[in-house]
Nucleic acid binder design. Structure first.
Lengths: 148, 148
DNA sequence: TATTGTTATACTCTATAACTATA
DNA sequence: TATAGTTATAGAGTATAACAATA
Protein backbone atom coordinates (compact mmCIF):
# COMPACT_ATOMS: atom_id res chain seq x y z
CA UNK A 1 0.00 0.00 0.00
CA UNK A 2 1.43 3.32 -1.02
CA UNK A 3 -0.68 6.47 -1.07
CA UNK A 4 2.05 8.24 -3.05
CA UNK A 5 3.06 11.79 -2.25
CA UNK A 6 0.72 13.68 0.01
CA UNK A 7 -1.62 15.73 -2.19
CA UNK A 8 -0.80 19.44 -2.19
CA UNK A 9 -3.75 21.42 -0.81
CA UNK A 10 -5.11 23.72 -3.49
CA UNK A 11 -4.70 26.82 -1.33
CA UNK A 12 -1.03 25.97 -0.87
CA UNK A 13 -0.63 25.40 -4.59
CA UNK A 14 -1.97 28.81 -5.55
CA UNK A 15 0.02 30.54 -2.81
CA UNK A 16 3.25 28.82 -3.80
CA UNK A 17 2.68 29.58 -7.45
CA UNK A 18 2.18 33.22 -6.56
CA UNK A 19 5.42 33.27 -4.59
CA UNK A 20 7.28 31.58 -7.44
CA UNK A 21 6.09 34.18 -9.93
CA UNK A 22 7.03 36.99 -7.58
CA UNK A 23 10.50 35.49 -7.07
CA UNK A 24 11.07 35.32 -10.83
CA UNK A 25 10.02 38.94 -11.20
CA UNK A 26 12.31 40.10 -8.40
CA UNK A 27 15.25 38.18 -9.82
CA UNK A 28 14.80 39.49 -13.34
CA UNK A 29 14.32 43.04 -12.12
CA UNK A 30 17.45 42.81 -9.98
CA UNK A 31 19.41 41.41 -12.94
CA UNK A 32 18.56 44.64 -14.77
CA UNK A 33 19.45 46.67 -11.69
CA UNK A 34 15.81 47.57 -11.16
CA UNK A 35 13.48 47.26 -8.21
CA UNK A 36 10.10 45.61 -8.72
CA UNK A 37 8.45 49.01 -8.45
CA UNK A 38 10.76 50.60 -11.03
CA UNK A 39 10.05 47.63 -13.28
CA UNK A 40 6.31 48.06 -12.89
CA UNK A 41 6.63 51.76 -13.65
CA UNK A 42 8.66 51.20 -16.81
CA UNK A 43 6.14 48.55 -17.82
CA UNK A 44 3.30 51.05 -17.49
CA UNK A 45 5.24 53.56 -19.58
CA UNK A 46 5.80 51.11 -22.43
CA UNK A 47 2.59 52.20 -24.12
CA UNK A 48 1.56 55.39 -22.31
CA UNK A 49 2.81 58.87 -21.50
CA UNK A 50 0.70 59.49 -18.42
CA UNK A 51 0.64 62.45 -16.08
CA UNK A 52 2.21 61.99 -12.68
CA UNK A 53 -1.24 61.56 -11.21
CA UNK A 54 -2.27 58.94 -13.76
CA UNK A 55 0.96 57.07 -13.16
CA UNK A 56 0.22 57.06 -9.45
CA UNK A 57 -3.22 55.62 -10.15
CA UNK A 58 -1.72 52.83 -12.28
CA UNK A 59 0.81 51.97 -9.59
CA UNK A 60 -1.50 52.66 -6.63
CA UNK A 61 0.99 55.08 -5.12
CA UNK A 62 0.66 58.48 -3.51
CA UNK A 63 1.66 61.41 -5.69
CA UNK A 64 4.62 62.14 -3.43
CA UNK A 65 5.85 58.57 -3.89
CA UNK A 66 5.54 58.94 -7.66
CA UNK A 67 7.59 62.14 -7.55
CA UNK A 68 10.48 60.29 -5.91
CA UNK A 69 10.14 57.23 -8.10
CA UNK A 70 10.21 59.26 -11.31
CA UNK A 71 12.99 61.48 -10.00
CA UNK A 72 15.28 58.51 -9.41
CA UNK A 73 14.47 56.97 -12.78
CA UNK A 74 15.02 60.31 -14.50
CA UNK A 75 18.41 60.68 -12.81
CA UNK A 76 19.35 57.34 -14.40
CA UNK A 77 18.11 58.50 -17.80
CA UNK A 78 15.36 55.88 -17.97
CA UNK A 79 12.44 58.31 -18.22
CA UNK A 80 11.90 62.03 -18.65
CA UNK A 81 9.28 64.55 -17.56
CA UNK A 82 7.71 67.21 -19.72
CA UNK A 83 4.89 69.69 -19.24
CA UNK A 84 1.49 68.74 -20.64
CA UNK A 85 0.04 70.90 -23.40
CA UNK A 86 -3.44 71.70 -22.21
CA UNK A 87 -2.96 71.97 -18.45
CA UNK A 88 -0.05 73.95 -17.11
CA UNK A 89 -0.26 72.08 -13.82
CA UNK A 90 0.24 68.60 -15.25
CA UNK A 91 3.52 66.84 -15.93
CA UNK A 92 3.76 63.87 -18.24
CA UNK A 93 6.28 61.04 -18.07
CA UNK A 94 7.93 59.43 -21.08
CA UNK A 95 10.05 56.29 -21.39
CA UNK A 96 13.53 57.05 -22.76
CA UNK A 97 15.51 54.69 -24.99
CA UNK A 98 17.65 53.36 -22.15
CA UNK A 99 14.54 52.69 -20.11
CA UNK A 100 12.86 50.91 -22.99
CA UNK A 101 15.84 48.67 -23.56
CA UNK A 102 15.88 47.78 -19.89
CA UNK A 103 12.18 47.00 -19.56
CA UNK A 104 12.07 45.10 -22.86
CA UNK A 105 14.92 42.88 -21.73
CA UNK A 106 13.54 42.31 -18.26
CA UNK A 107 10.05 41.59 -19.58
CA UNK A 108 11.34 39.12 -22.15
CA UNK A 109 13.41 37.27 -19.57
CA UNK A 110 10.55 37.19 -17.11
CA UNK A 111 8.28 35.78 -19.81
CA UNK A 112 10.98 33.25 -20.59
CA UNK A 113 11.04 32.12 -16.97
CA UNK A 114 7.29 31.64 -17.01
CA UNK A 115 7.44 29.78 -20.34
CA UNK A 116 10.11 27.52 -18.92
CA UNK A 117 7.88 26.57 -16.04
CA UNK A 118 4.89 26.08 -18.34
CA UNK A 119 6.95 23.69 -20.42
CA UNK A 120 6.12 21.08 -17.80
CA UNK A 121 2.62 20.81 -19.29
CA UNK A 122 1.56 19.17 -22.53
CA UNK A 123 -0.25 21.45 -24.99
CA UNK A 124 -3.61 19.98 -24.01
CA UNK A 125 -2.89 20.37 -20.31
CA UNK A 126 -1.73 23.90 -20.90
CA UNK A 127 -4.97 24.78 -22.62
CA UNK A 128 -7.00 23.33 -19.80
CA UNK A 129 -4.86 24.97 -17.10
CA UNK A 130 -5.24 28.35 -18.79
CA UNK A 131 -8.98 27.96 -19.11
CA UNK A 132 -9.35 27.24 -15.39
CA UNK A 133 -6.92 29.97 -14.37
CA UNK A 134 -8.82 32.52 -16.44
CA UNK A 135 -11.85 31.61 -14.33
CA UNK A 136 -9.86 32.23 -11.15
CA UNK A 137 -8.73 35.61 -12.43
CA UNK A 138 -12.28 36.53 -13.38
CA UNK A 139 -13.44 35.59 -9.88
CA UNK A 140 -10.70 37.74 -8.38
CA UNK A 141 -11.59 40.67 -10.60
CA UNK A 142 -15.24 40.35 -9.68
CA UNK A 143 -14.41 40.17 -5.98
CA UNK A 144 -12.27 43.28 -6.22
CA UNK A 145 -14.82 45.11 -8.28
CA UNK A 146 -17.40 44.51 -5.60
CA UNK A 147 -15.29 44.79 -2.47
CA UNK A 148 -13.02 47.64 -3.40
CA UNK B 1 -19.42 34.82 -36.58
CA UNK B 2 -18.18 35.47 -33.08
CA UNK B 3 -14.87 34.15 -31.82
CA UNK B 4 -15.84 35.00 -28.24
CA UNK B 5 -13.45 36.67 -25.85
CA UNK B 6 -9.84 36.71 -26.95
CA UNK B 7 -8.08 33.77 -25.30
CA UNK B 8 -5.75 34.79 -22.47
CA UNK B 9 -2.18 33.75 -23.28
CA UNK B 10 -0.95 31.25 -20.74
CA UNK B 11 2.06 33.35 -19.81
CA UNK B 12 -0.23 36.26 -19.03
CA UNK B 13 -2.49 34.02 -16.99
CA UNK B 14 0.30 32.78 -14.74
CA UNK B 15 1.75 36.28 -14.38
CA UNK B 16 -1.60 37.80 -13.49
CA UNK B 17 -2.36 35.04 -11.03
CA UNK B 18 0.97 35.70 -9.37
CA UNK B 19 0.21 39.40 -9.09
CA UNK B 20 -3.25 38.66 -7.70
CA UNK B 21 -1.80 36.45 -4.98
CA UNK B 22 0.81 39.06 -4.11
CA UNK B 23 -1.85 41.76 -3.91
CA UNK B 24 -3.92 39.65 -1.50
CA UNK B 25 -0.89 39.08 0.68
CA UNK B 26 -0.01 42.77 0.75
CA UNK B 27 -3.56 43.77 1.59
CA UNK B 28 -3.92 41.25 4.40
CA UNK B 29 -0.54 42.16 5.83
CA UNK B 30 -1.41 45.86 5.74
CA UNK B 31 -4.75 45.15 7.41
CA UNK B 32 -2.77 43.71 10.34
CA UNK B 33 -0.41 46.68 10.21
CA UNK B 34 2.40 44.47 8.93
CA UNK B 35 4.69 44.70 5.95
CA UNK B 36 5.05 41.65 3.72
CA UNK B 37 8.52 41.08 5.14
CA UNK B 38 7.33 41.25 8.73
CA UNK B 39 4.56 38.84 7.80
CA UNK B 40 7.01 36.42 6.25
CA UNK B 41 9.21 36.63 9.34
CA UNK B 42 6.34 35.94 11.72
CA UNK B 43 5.33 33.05 9.48
CA UNK B 44 8.80 31.54 9.76
CA UNK B 45 8.67 31.91 13.54
CA UNK B 46 5.35 30.10 13.84
CA UNK B 47 7.10 26.77 14.23
CA UNK B 48 10.76 27.64 14.86
CA UNK B 49 12.99 29.57 17.26
CA UNK B 50 15.91 30.16 14.90
CA UNK B 51 19.10 32.09 15.48
CA UNK B 52 19.40 35.45 13.79
CA UNK B 53 21.58 33.84 11.14
CA UNK B 54 19.12 31.02 10.48
CA UNK B 55 16.31 33.53 10.22
CA UNK B 56 18.32 35.47 7.66
CA UNK B 57 18.80 32.28 5.65
CA UNK B 58 15.06 31.58 5.68
CA UNK B 59 14.26 35.11 4.54
CA UNK B 60 17.29 35.50 2.27
CA UNK B 61 18.39 38.67 4.05
CA UNK B 62 21.71 39.98 5.25
CA UNK B 63 22.35 39.67 8.98
CA UNK B 64 22.23 43.44 9.37
CA UNK B 65 18.80 43.52 7.73
CA UNK B 66 17.61 40.83 10.13
CA UNK B 67 18.87 42.82 13.09
CA UNK B 68 16.72 45.78 12.08
CA UNK B 69 13.71 43.66 11.18
CA UNK B 70 13.75 41.84 14.51
CA UNK B 71 14.47 45.03 16.41
CA UNK B 72 11.36 46.73 15.01
CA UNK B 73 9.19 43.67 15.66
CA UNK B 74 10.58 43.38 19.19
CA UNK B 75 9.79 47.02 19.88
CA UNK B 76 6.17 46.21 18.98
CA UNK B 77 6.18 43.20 21.29
CA UNK B 78 5.68 40.70 18.45
CA UNK B 79 8.89 38.72 18.99
CA UNK B 80 11.68 38.53 21.53
CA UNK B 81 15.37 37.70 21.45
CA UNK B 82 17.20 35.45 23.90
CA UNK B 83 20.72 34.06 24.06
CA UNK B 84 21.24 30.51 22.81
CA UNK B 85 22.38 27.91 25.33
CA UNK B 86 25.38 26.30 23.70
CA UNK B 87 26.95 29.22 21.82
CA UNK B 88 27.35 32.51 23.60
CA UNK B 89 27.55 34.31 20.30
CA UNK B 90 24.16 33.21 18.99
CA UNK B 91 20.83 34.90 19.60
CA UNK B 92 17.53 33.11 19.06
CA UNK B 93 14.21 34.68 18.13
CA UNK B 94 10.85 33.66 19.55
CA UNK B 95 7.31 34.59 18.53
CA UNK B 96 5.41 36.31 21.35
CA UNK B 97 1.68 35.97 21.96
CA UNK B 98 0.82 39.25 20.25
CA UNK B 99 2.88 38.24 17.23
CA UNK B 100 1.21 34.85 17.07
CA UNK B 101 -2.23 36.37 17.18
CA UNK B 102 -1.31 38.74 14.39
CA UNK B 103 0.22 36.14 12.07
CA UNK B 104 -2.54 33.61 12.74
CA UNK B 105 -5.16 36.15 11.80
CA UNK B 106 -3.34 37.40 8.73
CA UNK B 107 -2.63 33.86 7.52
CA UNK B 108 -6.23 32.78 7.99
CA UNK B 109 -7.55 35.79 6.11
CA UNK B 110 -5.04 35.33 3.30
CA UNK B 111 -6.07 31.69 3.01
CA UNK B 112 -9.68 32.86 2.98
CA UNK B 113 -8.95 35.17 0.06
CA UNK B 114 -7.40 32.32 -1.88
CA UNK B 115 -10.30 30.01 -1.04
CA UNK B 116 -12.72 32.66 -2.22
CA UNK B 117 -11.01 32.81 -5.57
CA UNK B 118 -10.84 29.02 -5.82
CA UNK B 119 -14.58 28.87 -5.24
CA UNK B 120 -14.94 29.71 -8.93
CA UNK B 121 -14.00 26.10 -9.76
CA UNK B 122 -16.08 22.96 -9.35
CA UNK B 123 -14.57 20.25 -7.13
CA UNK B 124 -13.49 18.27 -10.19
CA UNK B 125 -11.94 21.31 -11.85
CA UNK B 126 -10.22 22.19 -8.64
CA UNK B 127 -8.65 18.76 -8.42
CA UNK B 128 -7.44 18.97 -11.99
CA UNK B 129 -6.13 22.54 -11.58
CA UNK B 130 -4.20 21.53 -8.47
CA UNK B 131 -2.70 18.50 -10.20
CA UNK B 132 -1.41 20.61 -13.07
CA UNK B 133 -0.20 23.41 -10.81
CA UNK B 134 1.75 20.93 -8.71
CA UNK B 135 3.57 19.98 -11.91
CA UNK B 136 4.40 23.64 -12.55
CA UNK B 137 5.74 24.01 -9.03
CA UNK B 138 7.83 20.88 -9.41
CA UNK B 139 9.28 22.25 -12.65
CA UNK B 140 10.12 25.52 -10.94
CA UNK B 141 11.74 23.73 -8.03
CA UNK B 142 13.80 21.60 -10.41
CA UNK B 143 14.87 24.66 -12.39
CA UNK B 144 15.94 26.46 -9.25
CA UNK B 145 17.70 23.42 -7.89
CA UNK B 146 19.77 23.25 -11.02
CA UNK B 147 20.31 26.93 -11.77
CA UNK B 148 20.84 28.22 -8.27
C1' DT C 1 -11.34 77.40 -4.33
C1' DA C 2 -9.83 73.12 -6.37
C1' DT C 3 -6.29 70.49 -8.66
C1' DT C 4 -1.47 69.03 -9.90
C1' DG C 5 2.75 68.33 -8.47
C1' DT C 6 6.94 69.07 -5.36
C1' DT C 7 9.20 69.29 -0.98
C1' DA C 8 10.05 68.41 4.01
C1' DT C 9 9.85 64.92 7.18
C1' DA C 10 9.59 60.37 9.15
C1' DC C 11 9.65 55.59 8.93
C1' DT C 12 10.59 50.76 6.95
C1' DC C 13 13.63 47.99 4.51
C1' DT C 14 17.99 46.79 2.48
C1' DA C 15 23.09 46.26 2.00
C1' DT C 16 28.19 47.22 3.01
C1' DA C 17 31.64 48.01 6.21
C1' DA C 18 33.38 48.46 10.74
C1' DC C 19 32.95 46.87 15.17
C1' DT C 20 32.21 43.73 19.63
C1' DA C 21 31.98 39.45 21.81
C1' DT C 22 32.58 34.67 21.77
C1' DA C 23 34.60 30.37 20.00
C1' DT D 1 41.49 33.55 13.42
C1' DA D 2 36.73 32.67 12.46
C1' DT D 3 31.89 33.23 13.50
C1' DA D 4 27.48 35.60 15.32
C1' DG D 5 25.49 39.61 15.82
C1' DT D 6 25.14 44.85 16.22
C1' DT D 7 25.83 49.46 14.70
C1' DA D 8 26.89 53.29 11.50
C1' DT D 9 25.83 54.79 7.22
C1' DA D 10 23.65 55.25 2.76
C1' DG D 11 20.02 54.73 -0.25
C1' DA D 12 15.26 53.18 -2.16
C1' DG D 13 10.58 53.38 -1.29
C1' DT D 14 6.43 54.81 1.13
C1' DA D 15 3.03 58.14 3.24
C1' DT D 16 1.35 62.62 5.47
C1' DA D 17 1.37 67.40 5.59
C1' DA D 18 2.63 71.81 3.94
C1' DC D 19 3.57 74.29 -0.01
C1' DA D 20 3.61 76.50 -5.01
C1' DA D 21 1.65 77.05 -9.40
C1' DT D 22 -2.15 76.74 -12.34
C1' DA D 23 -7.08 76.28 -13.35
Amino acid sequence: MNAGPAPLPTVDAVAQLGFAVQRMLENRAAASDLSVVQTRMLGVLRDREPTMGELGAFLDLDKSSVSGLVERAERRGLVSRFRAEHDGRSVRVRLEDDGRRLIDTAAAEFAGDLEGMLGALTPAERTEWTRLTARLLAADAAARGIRL
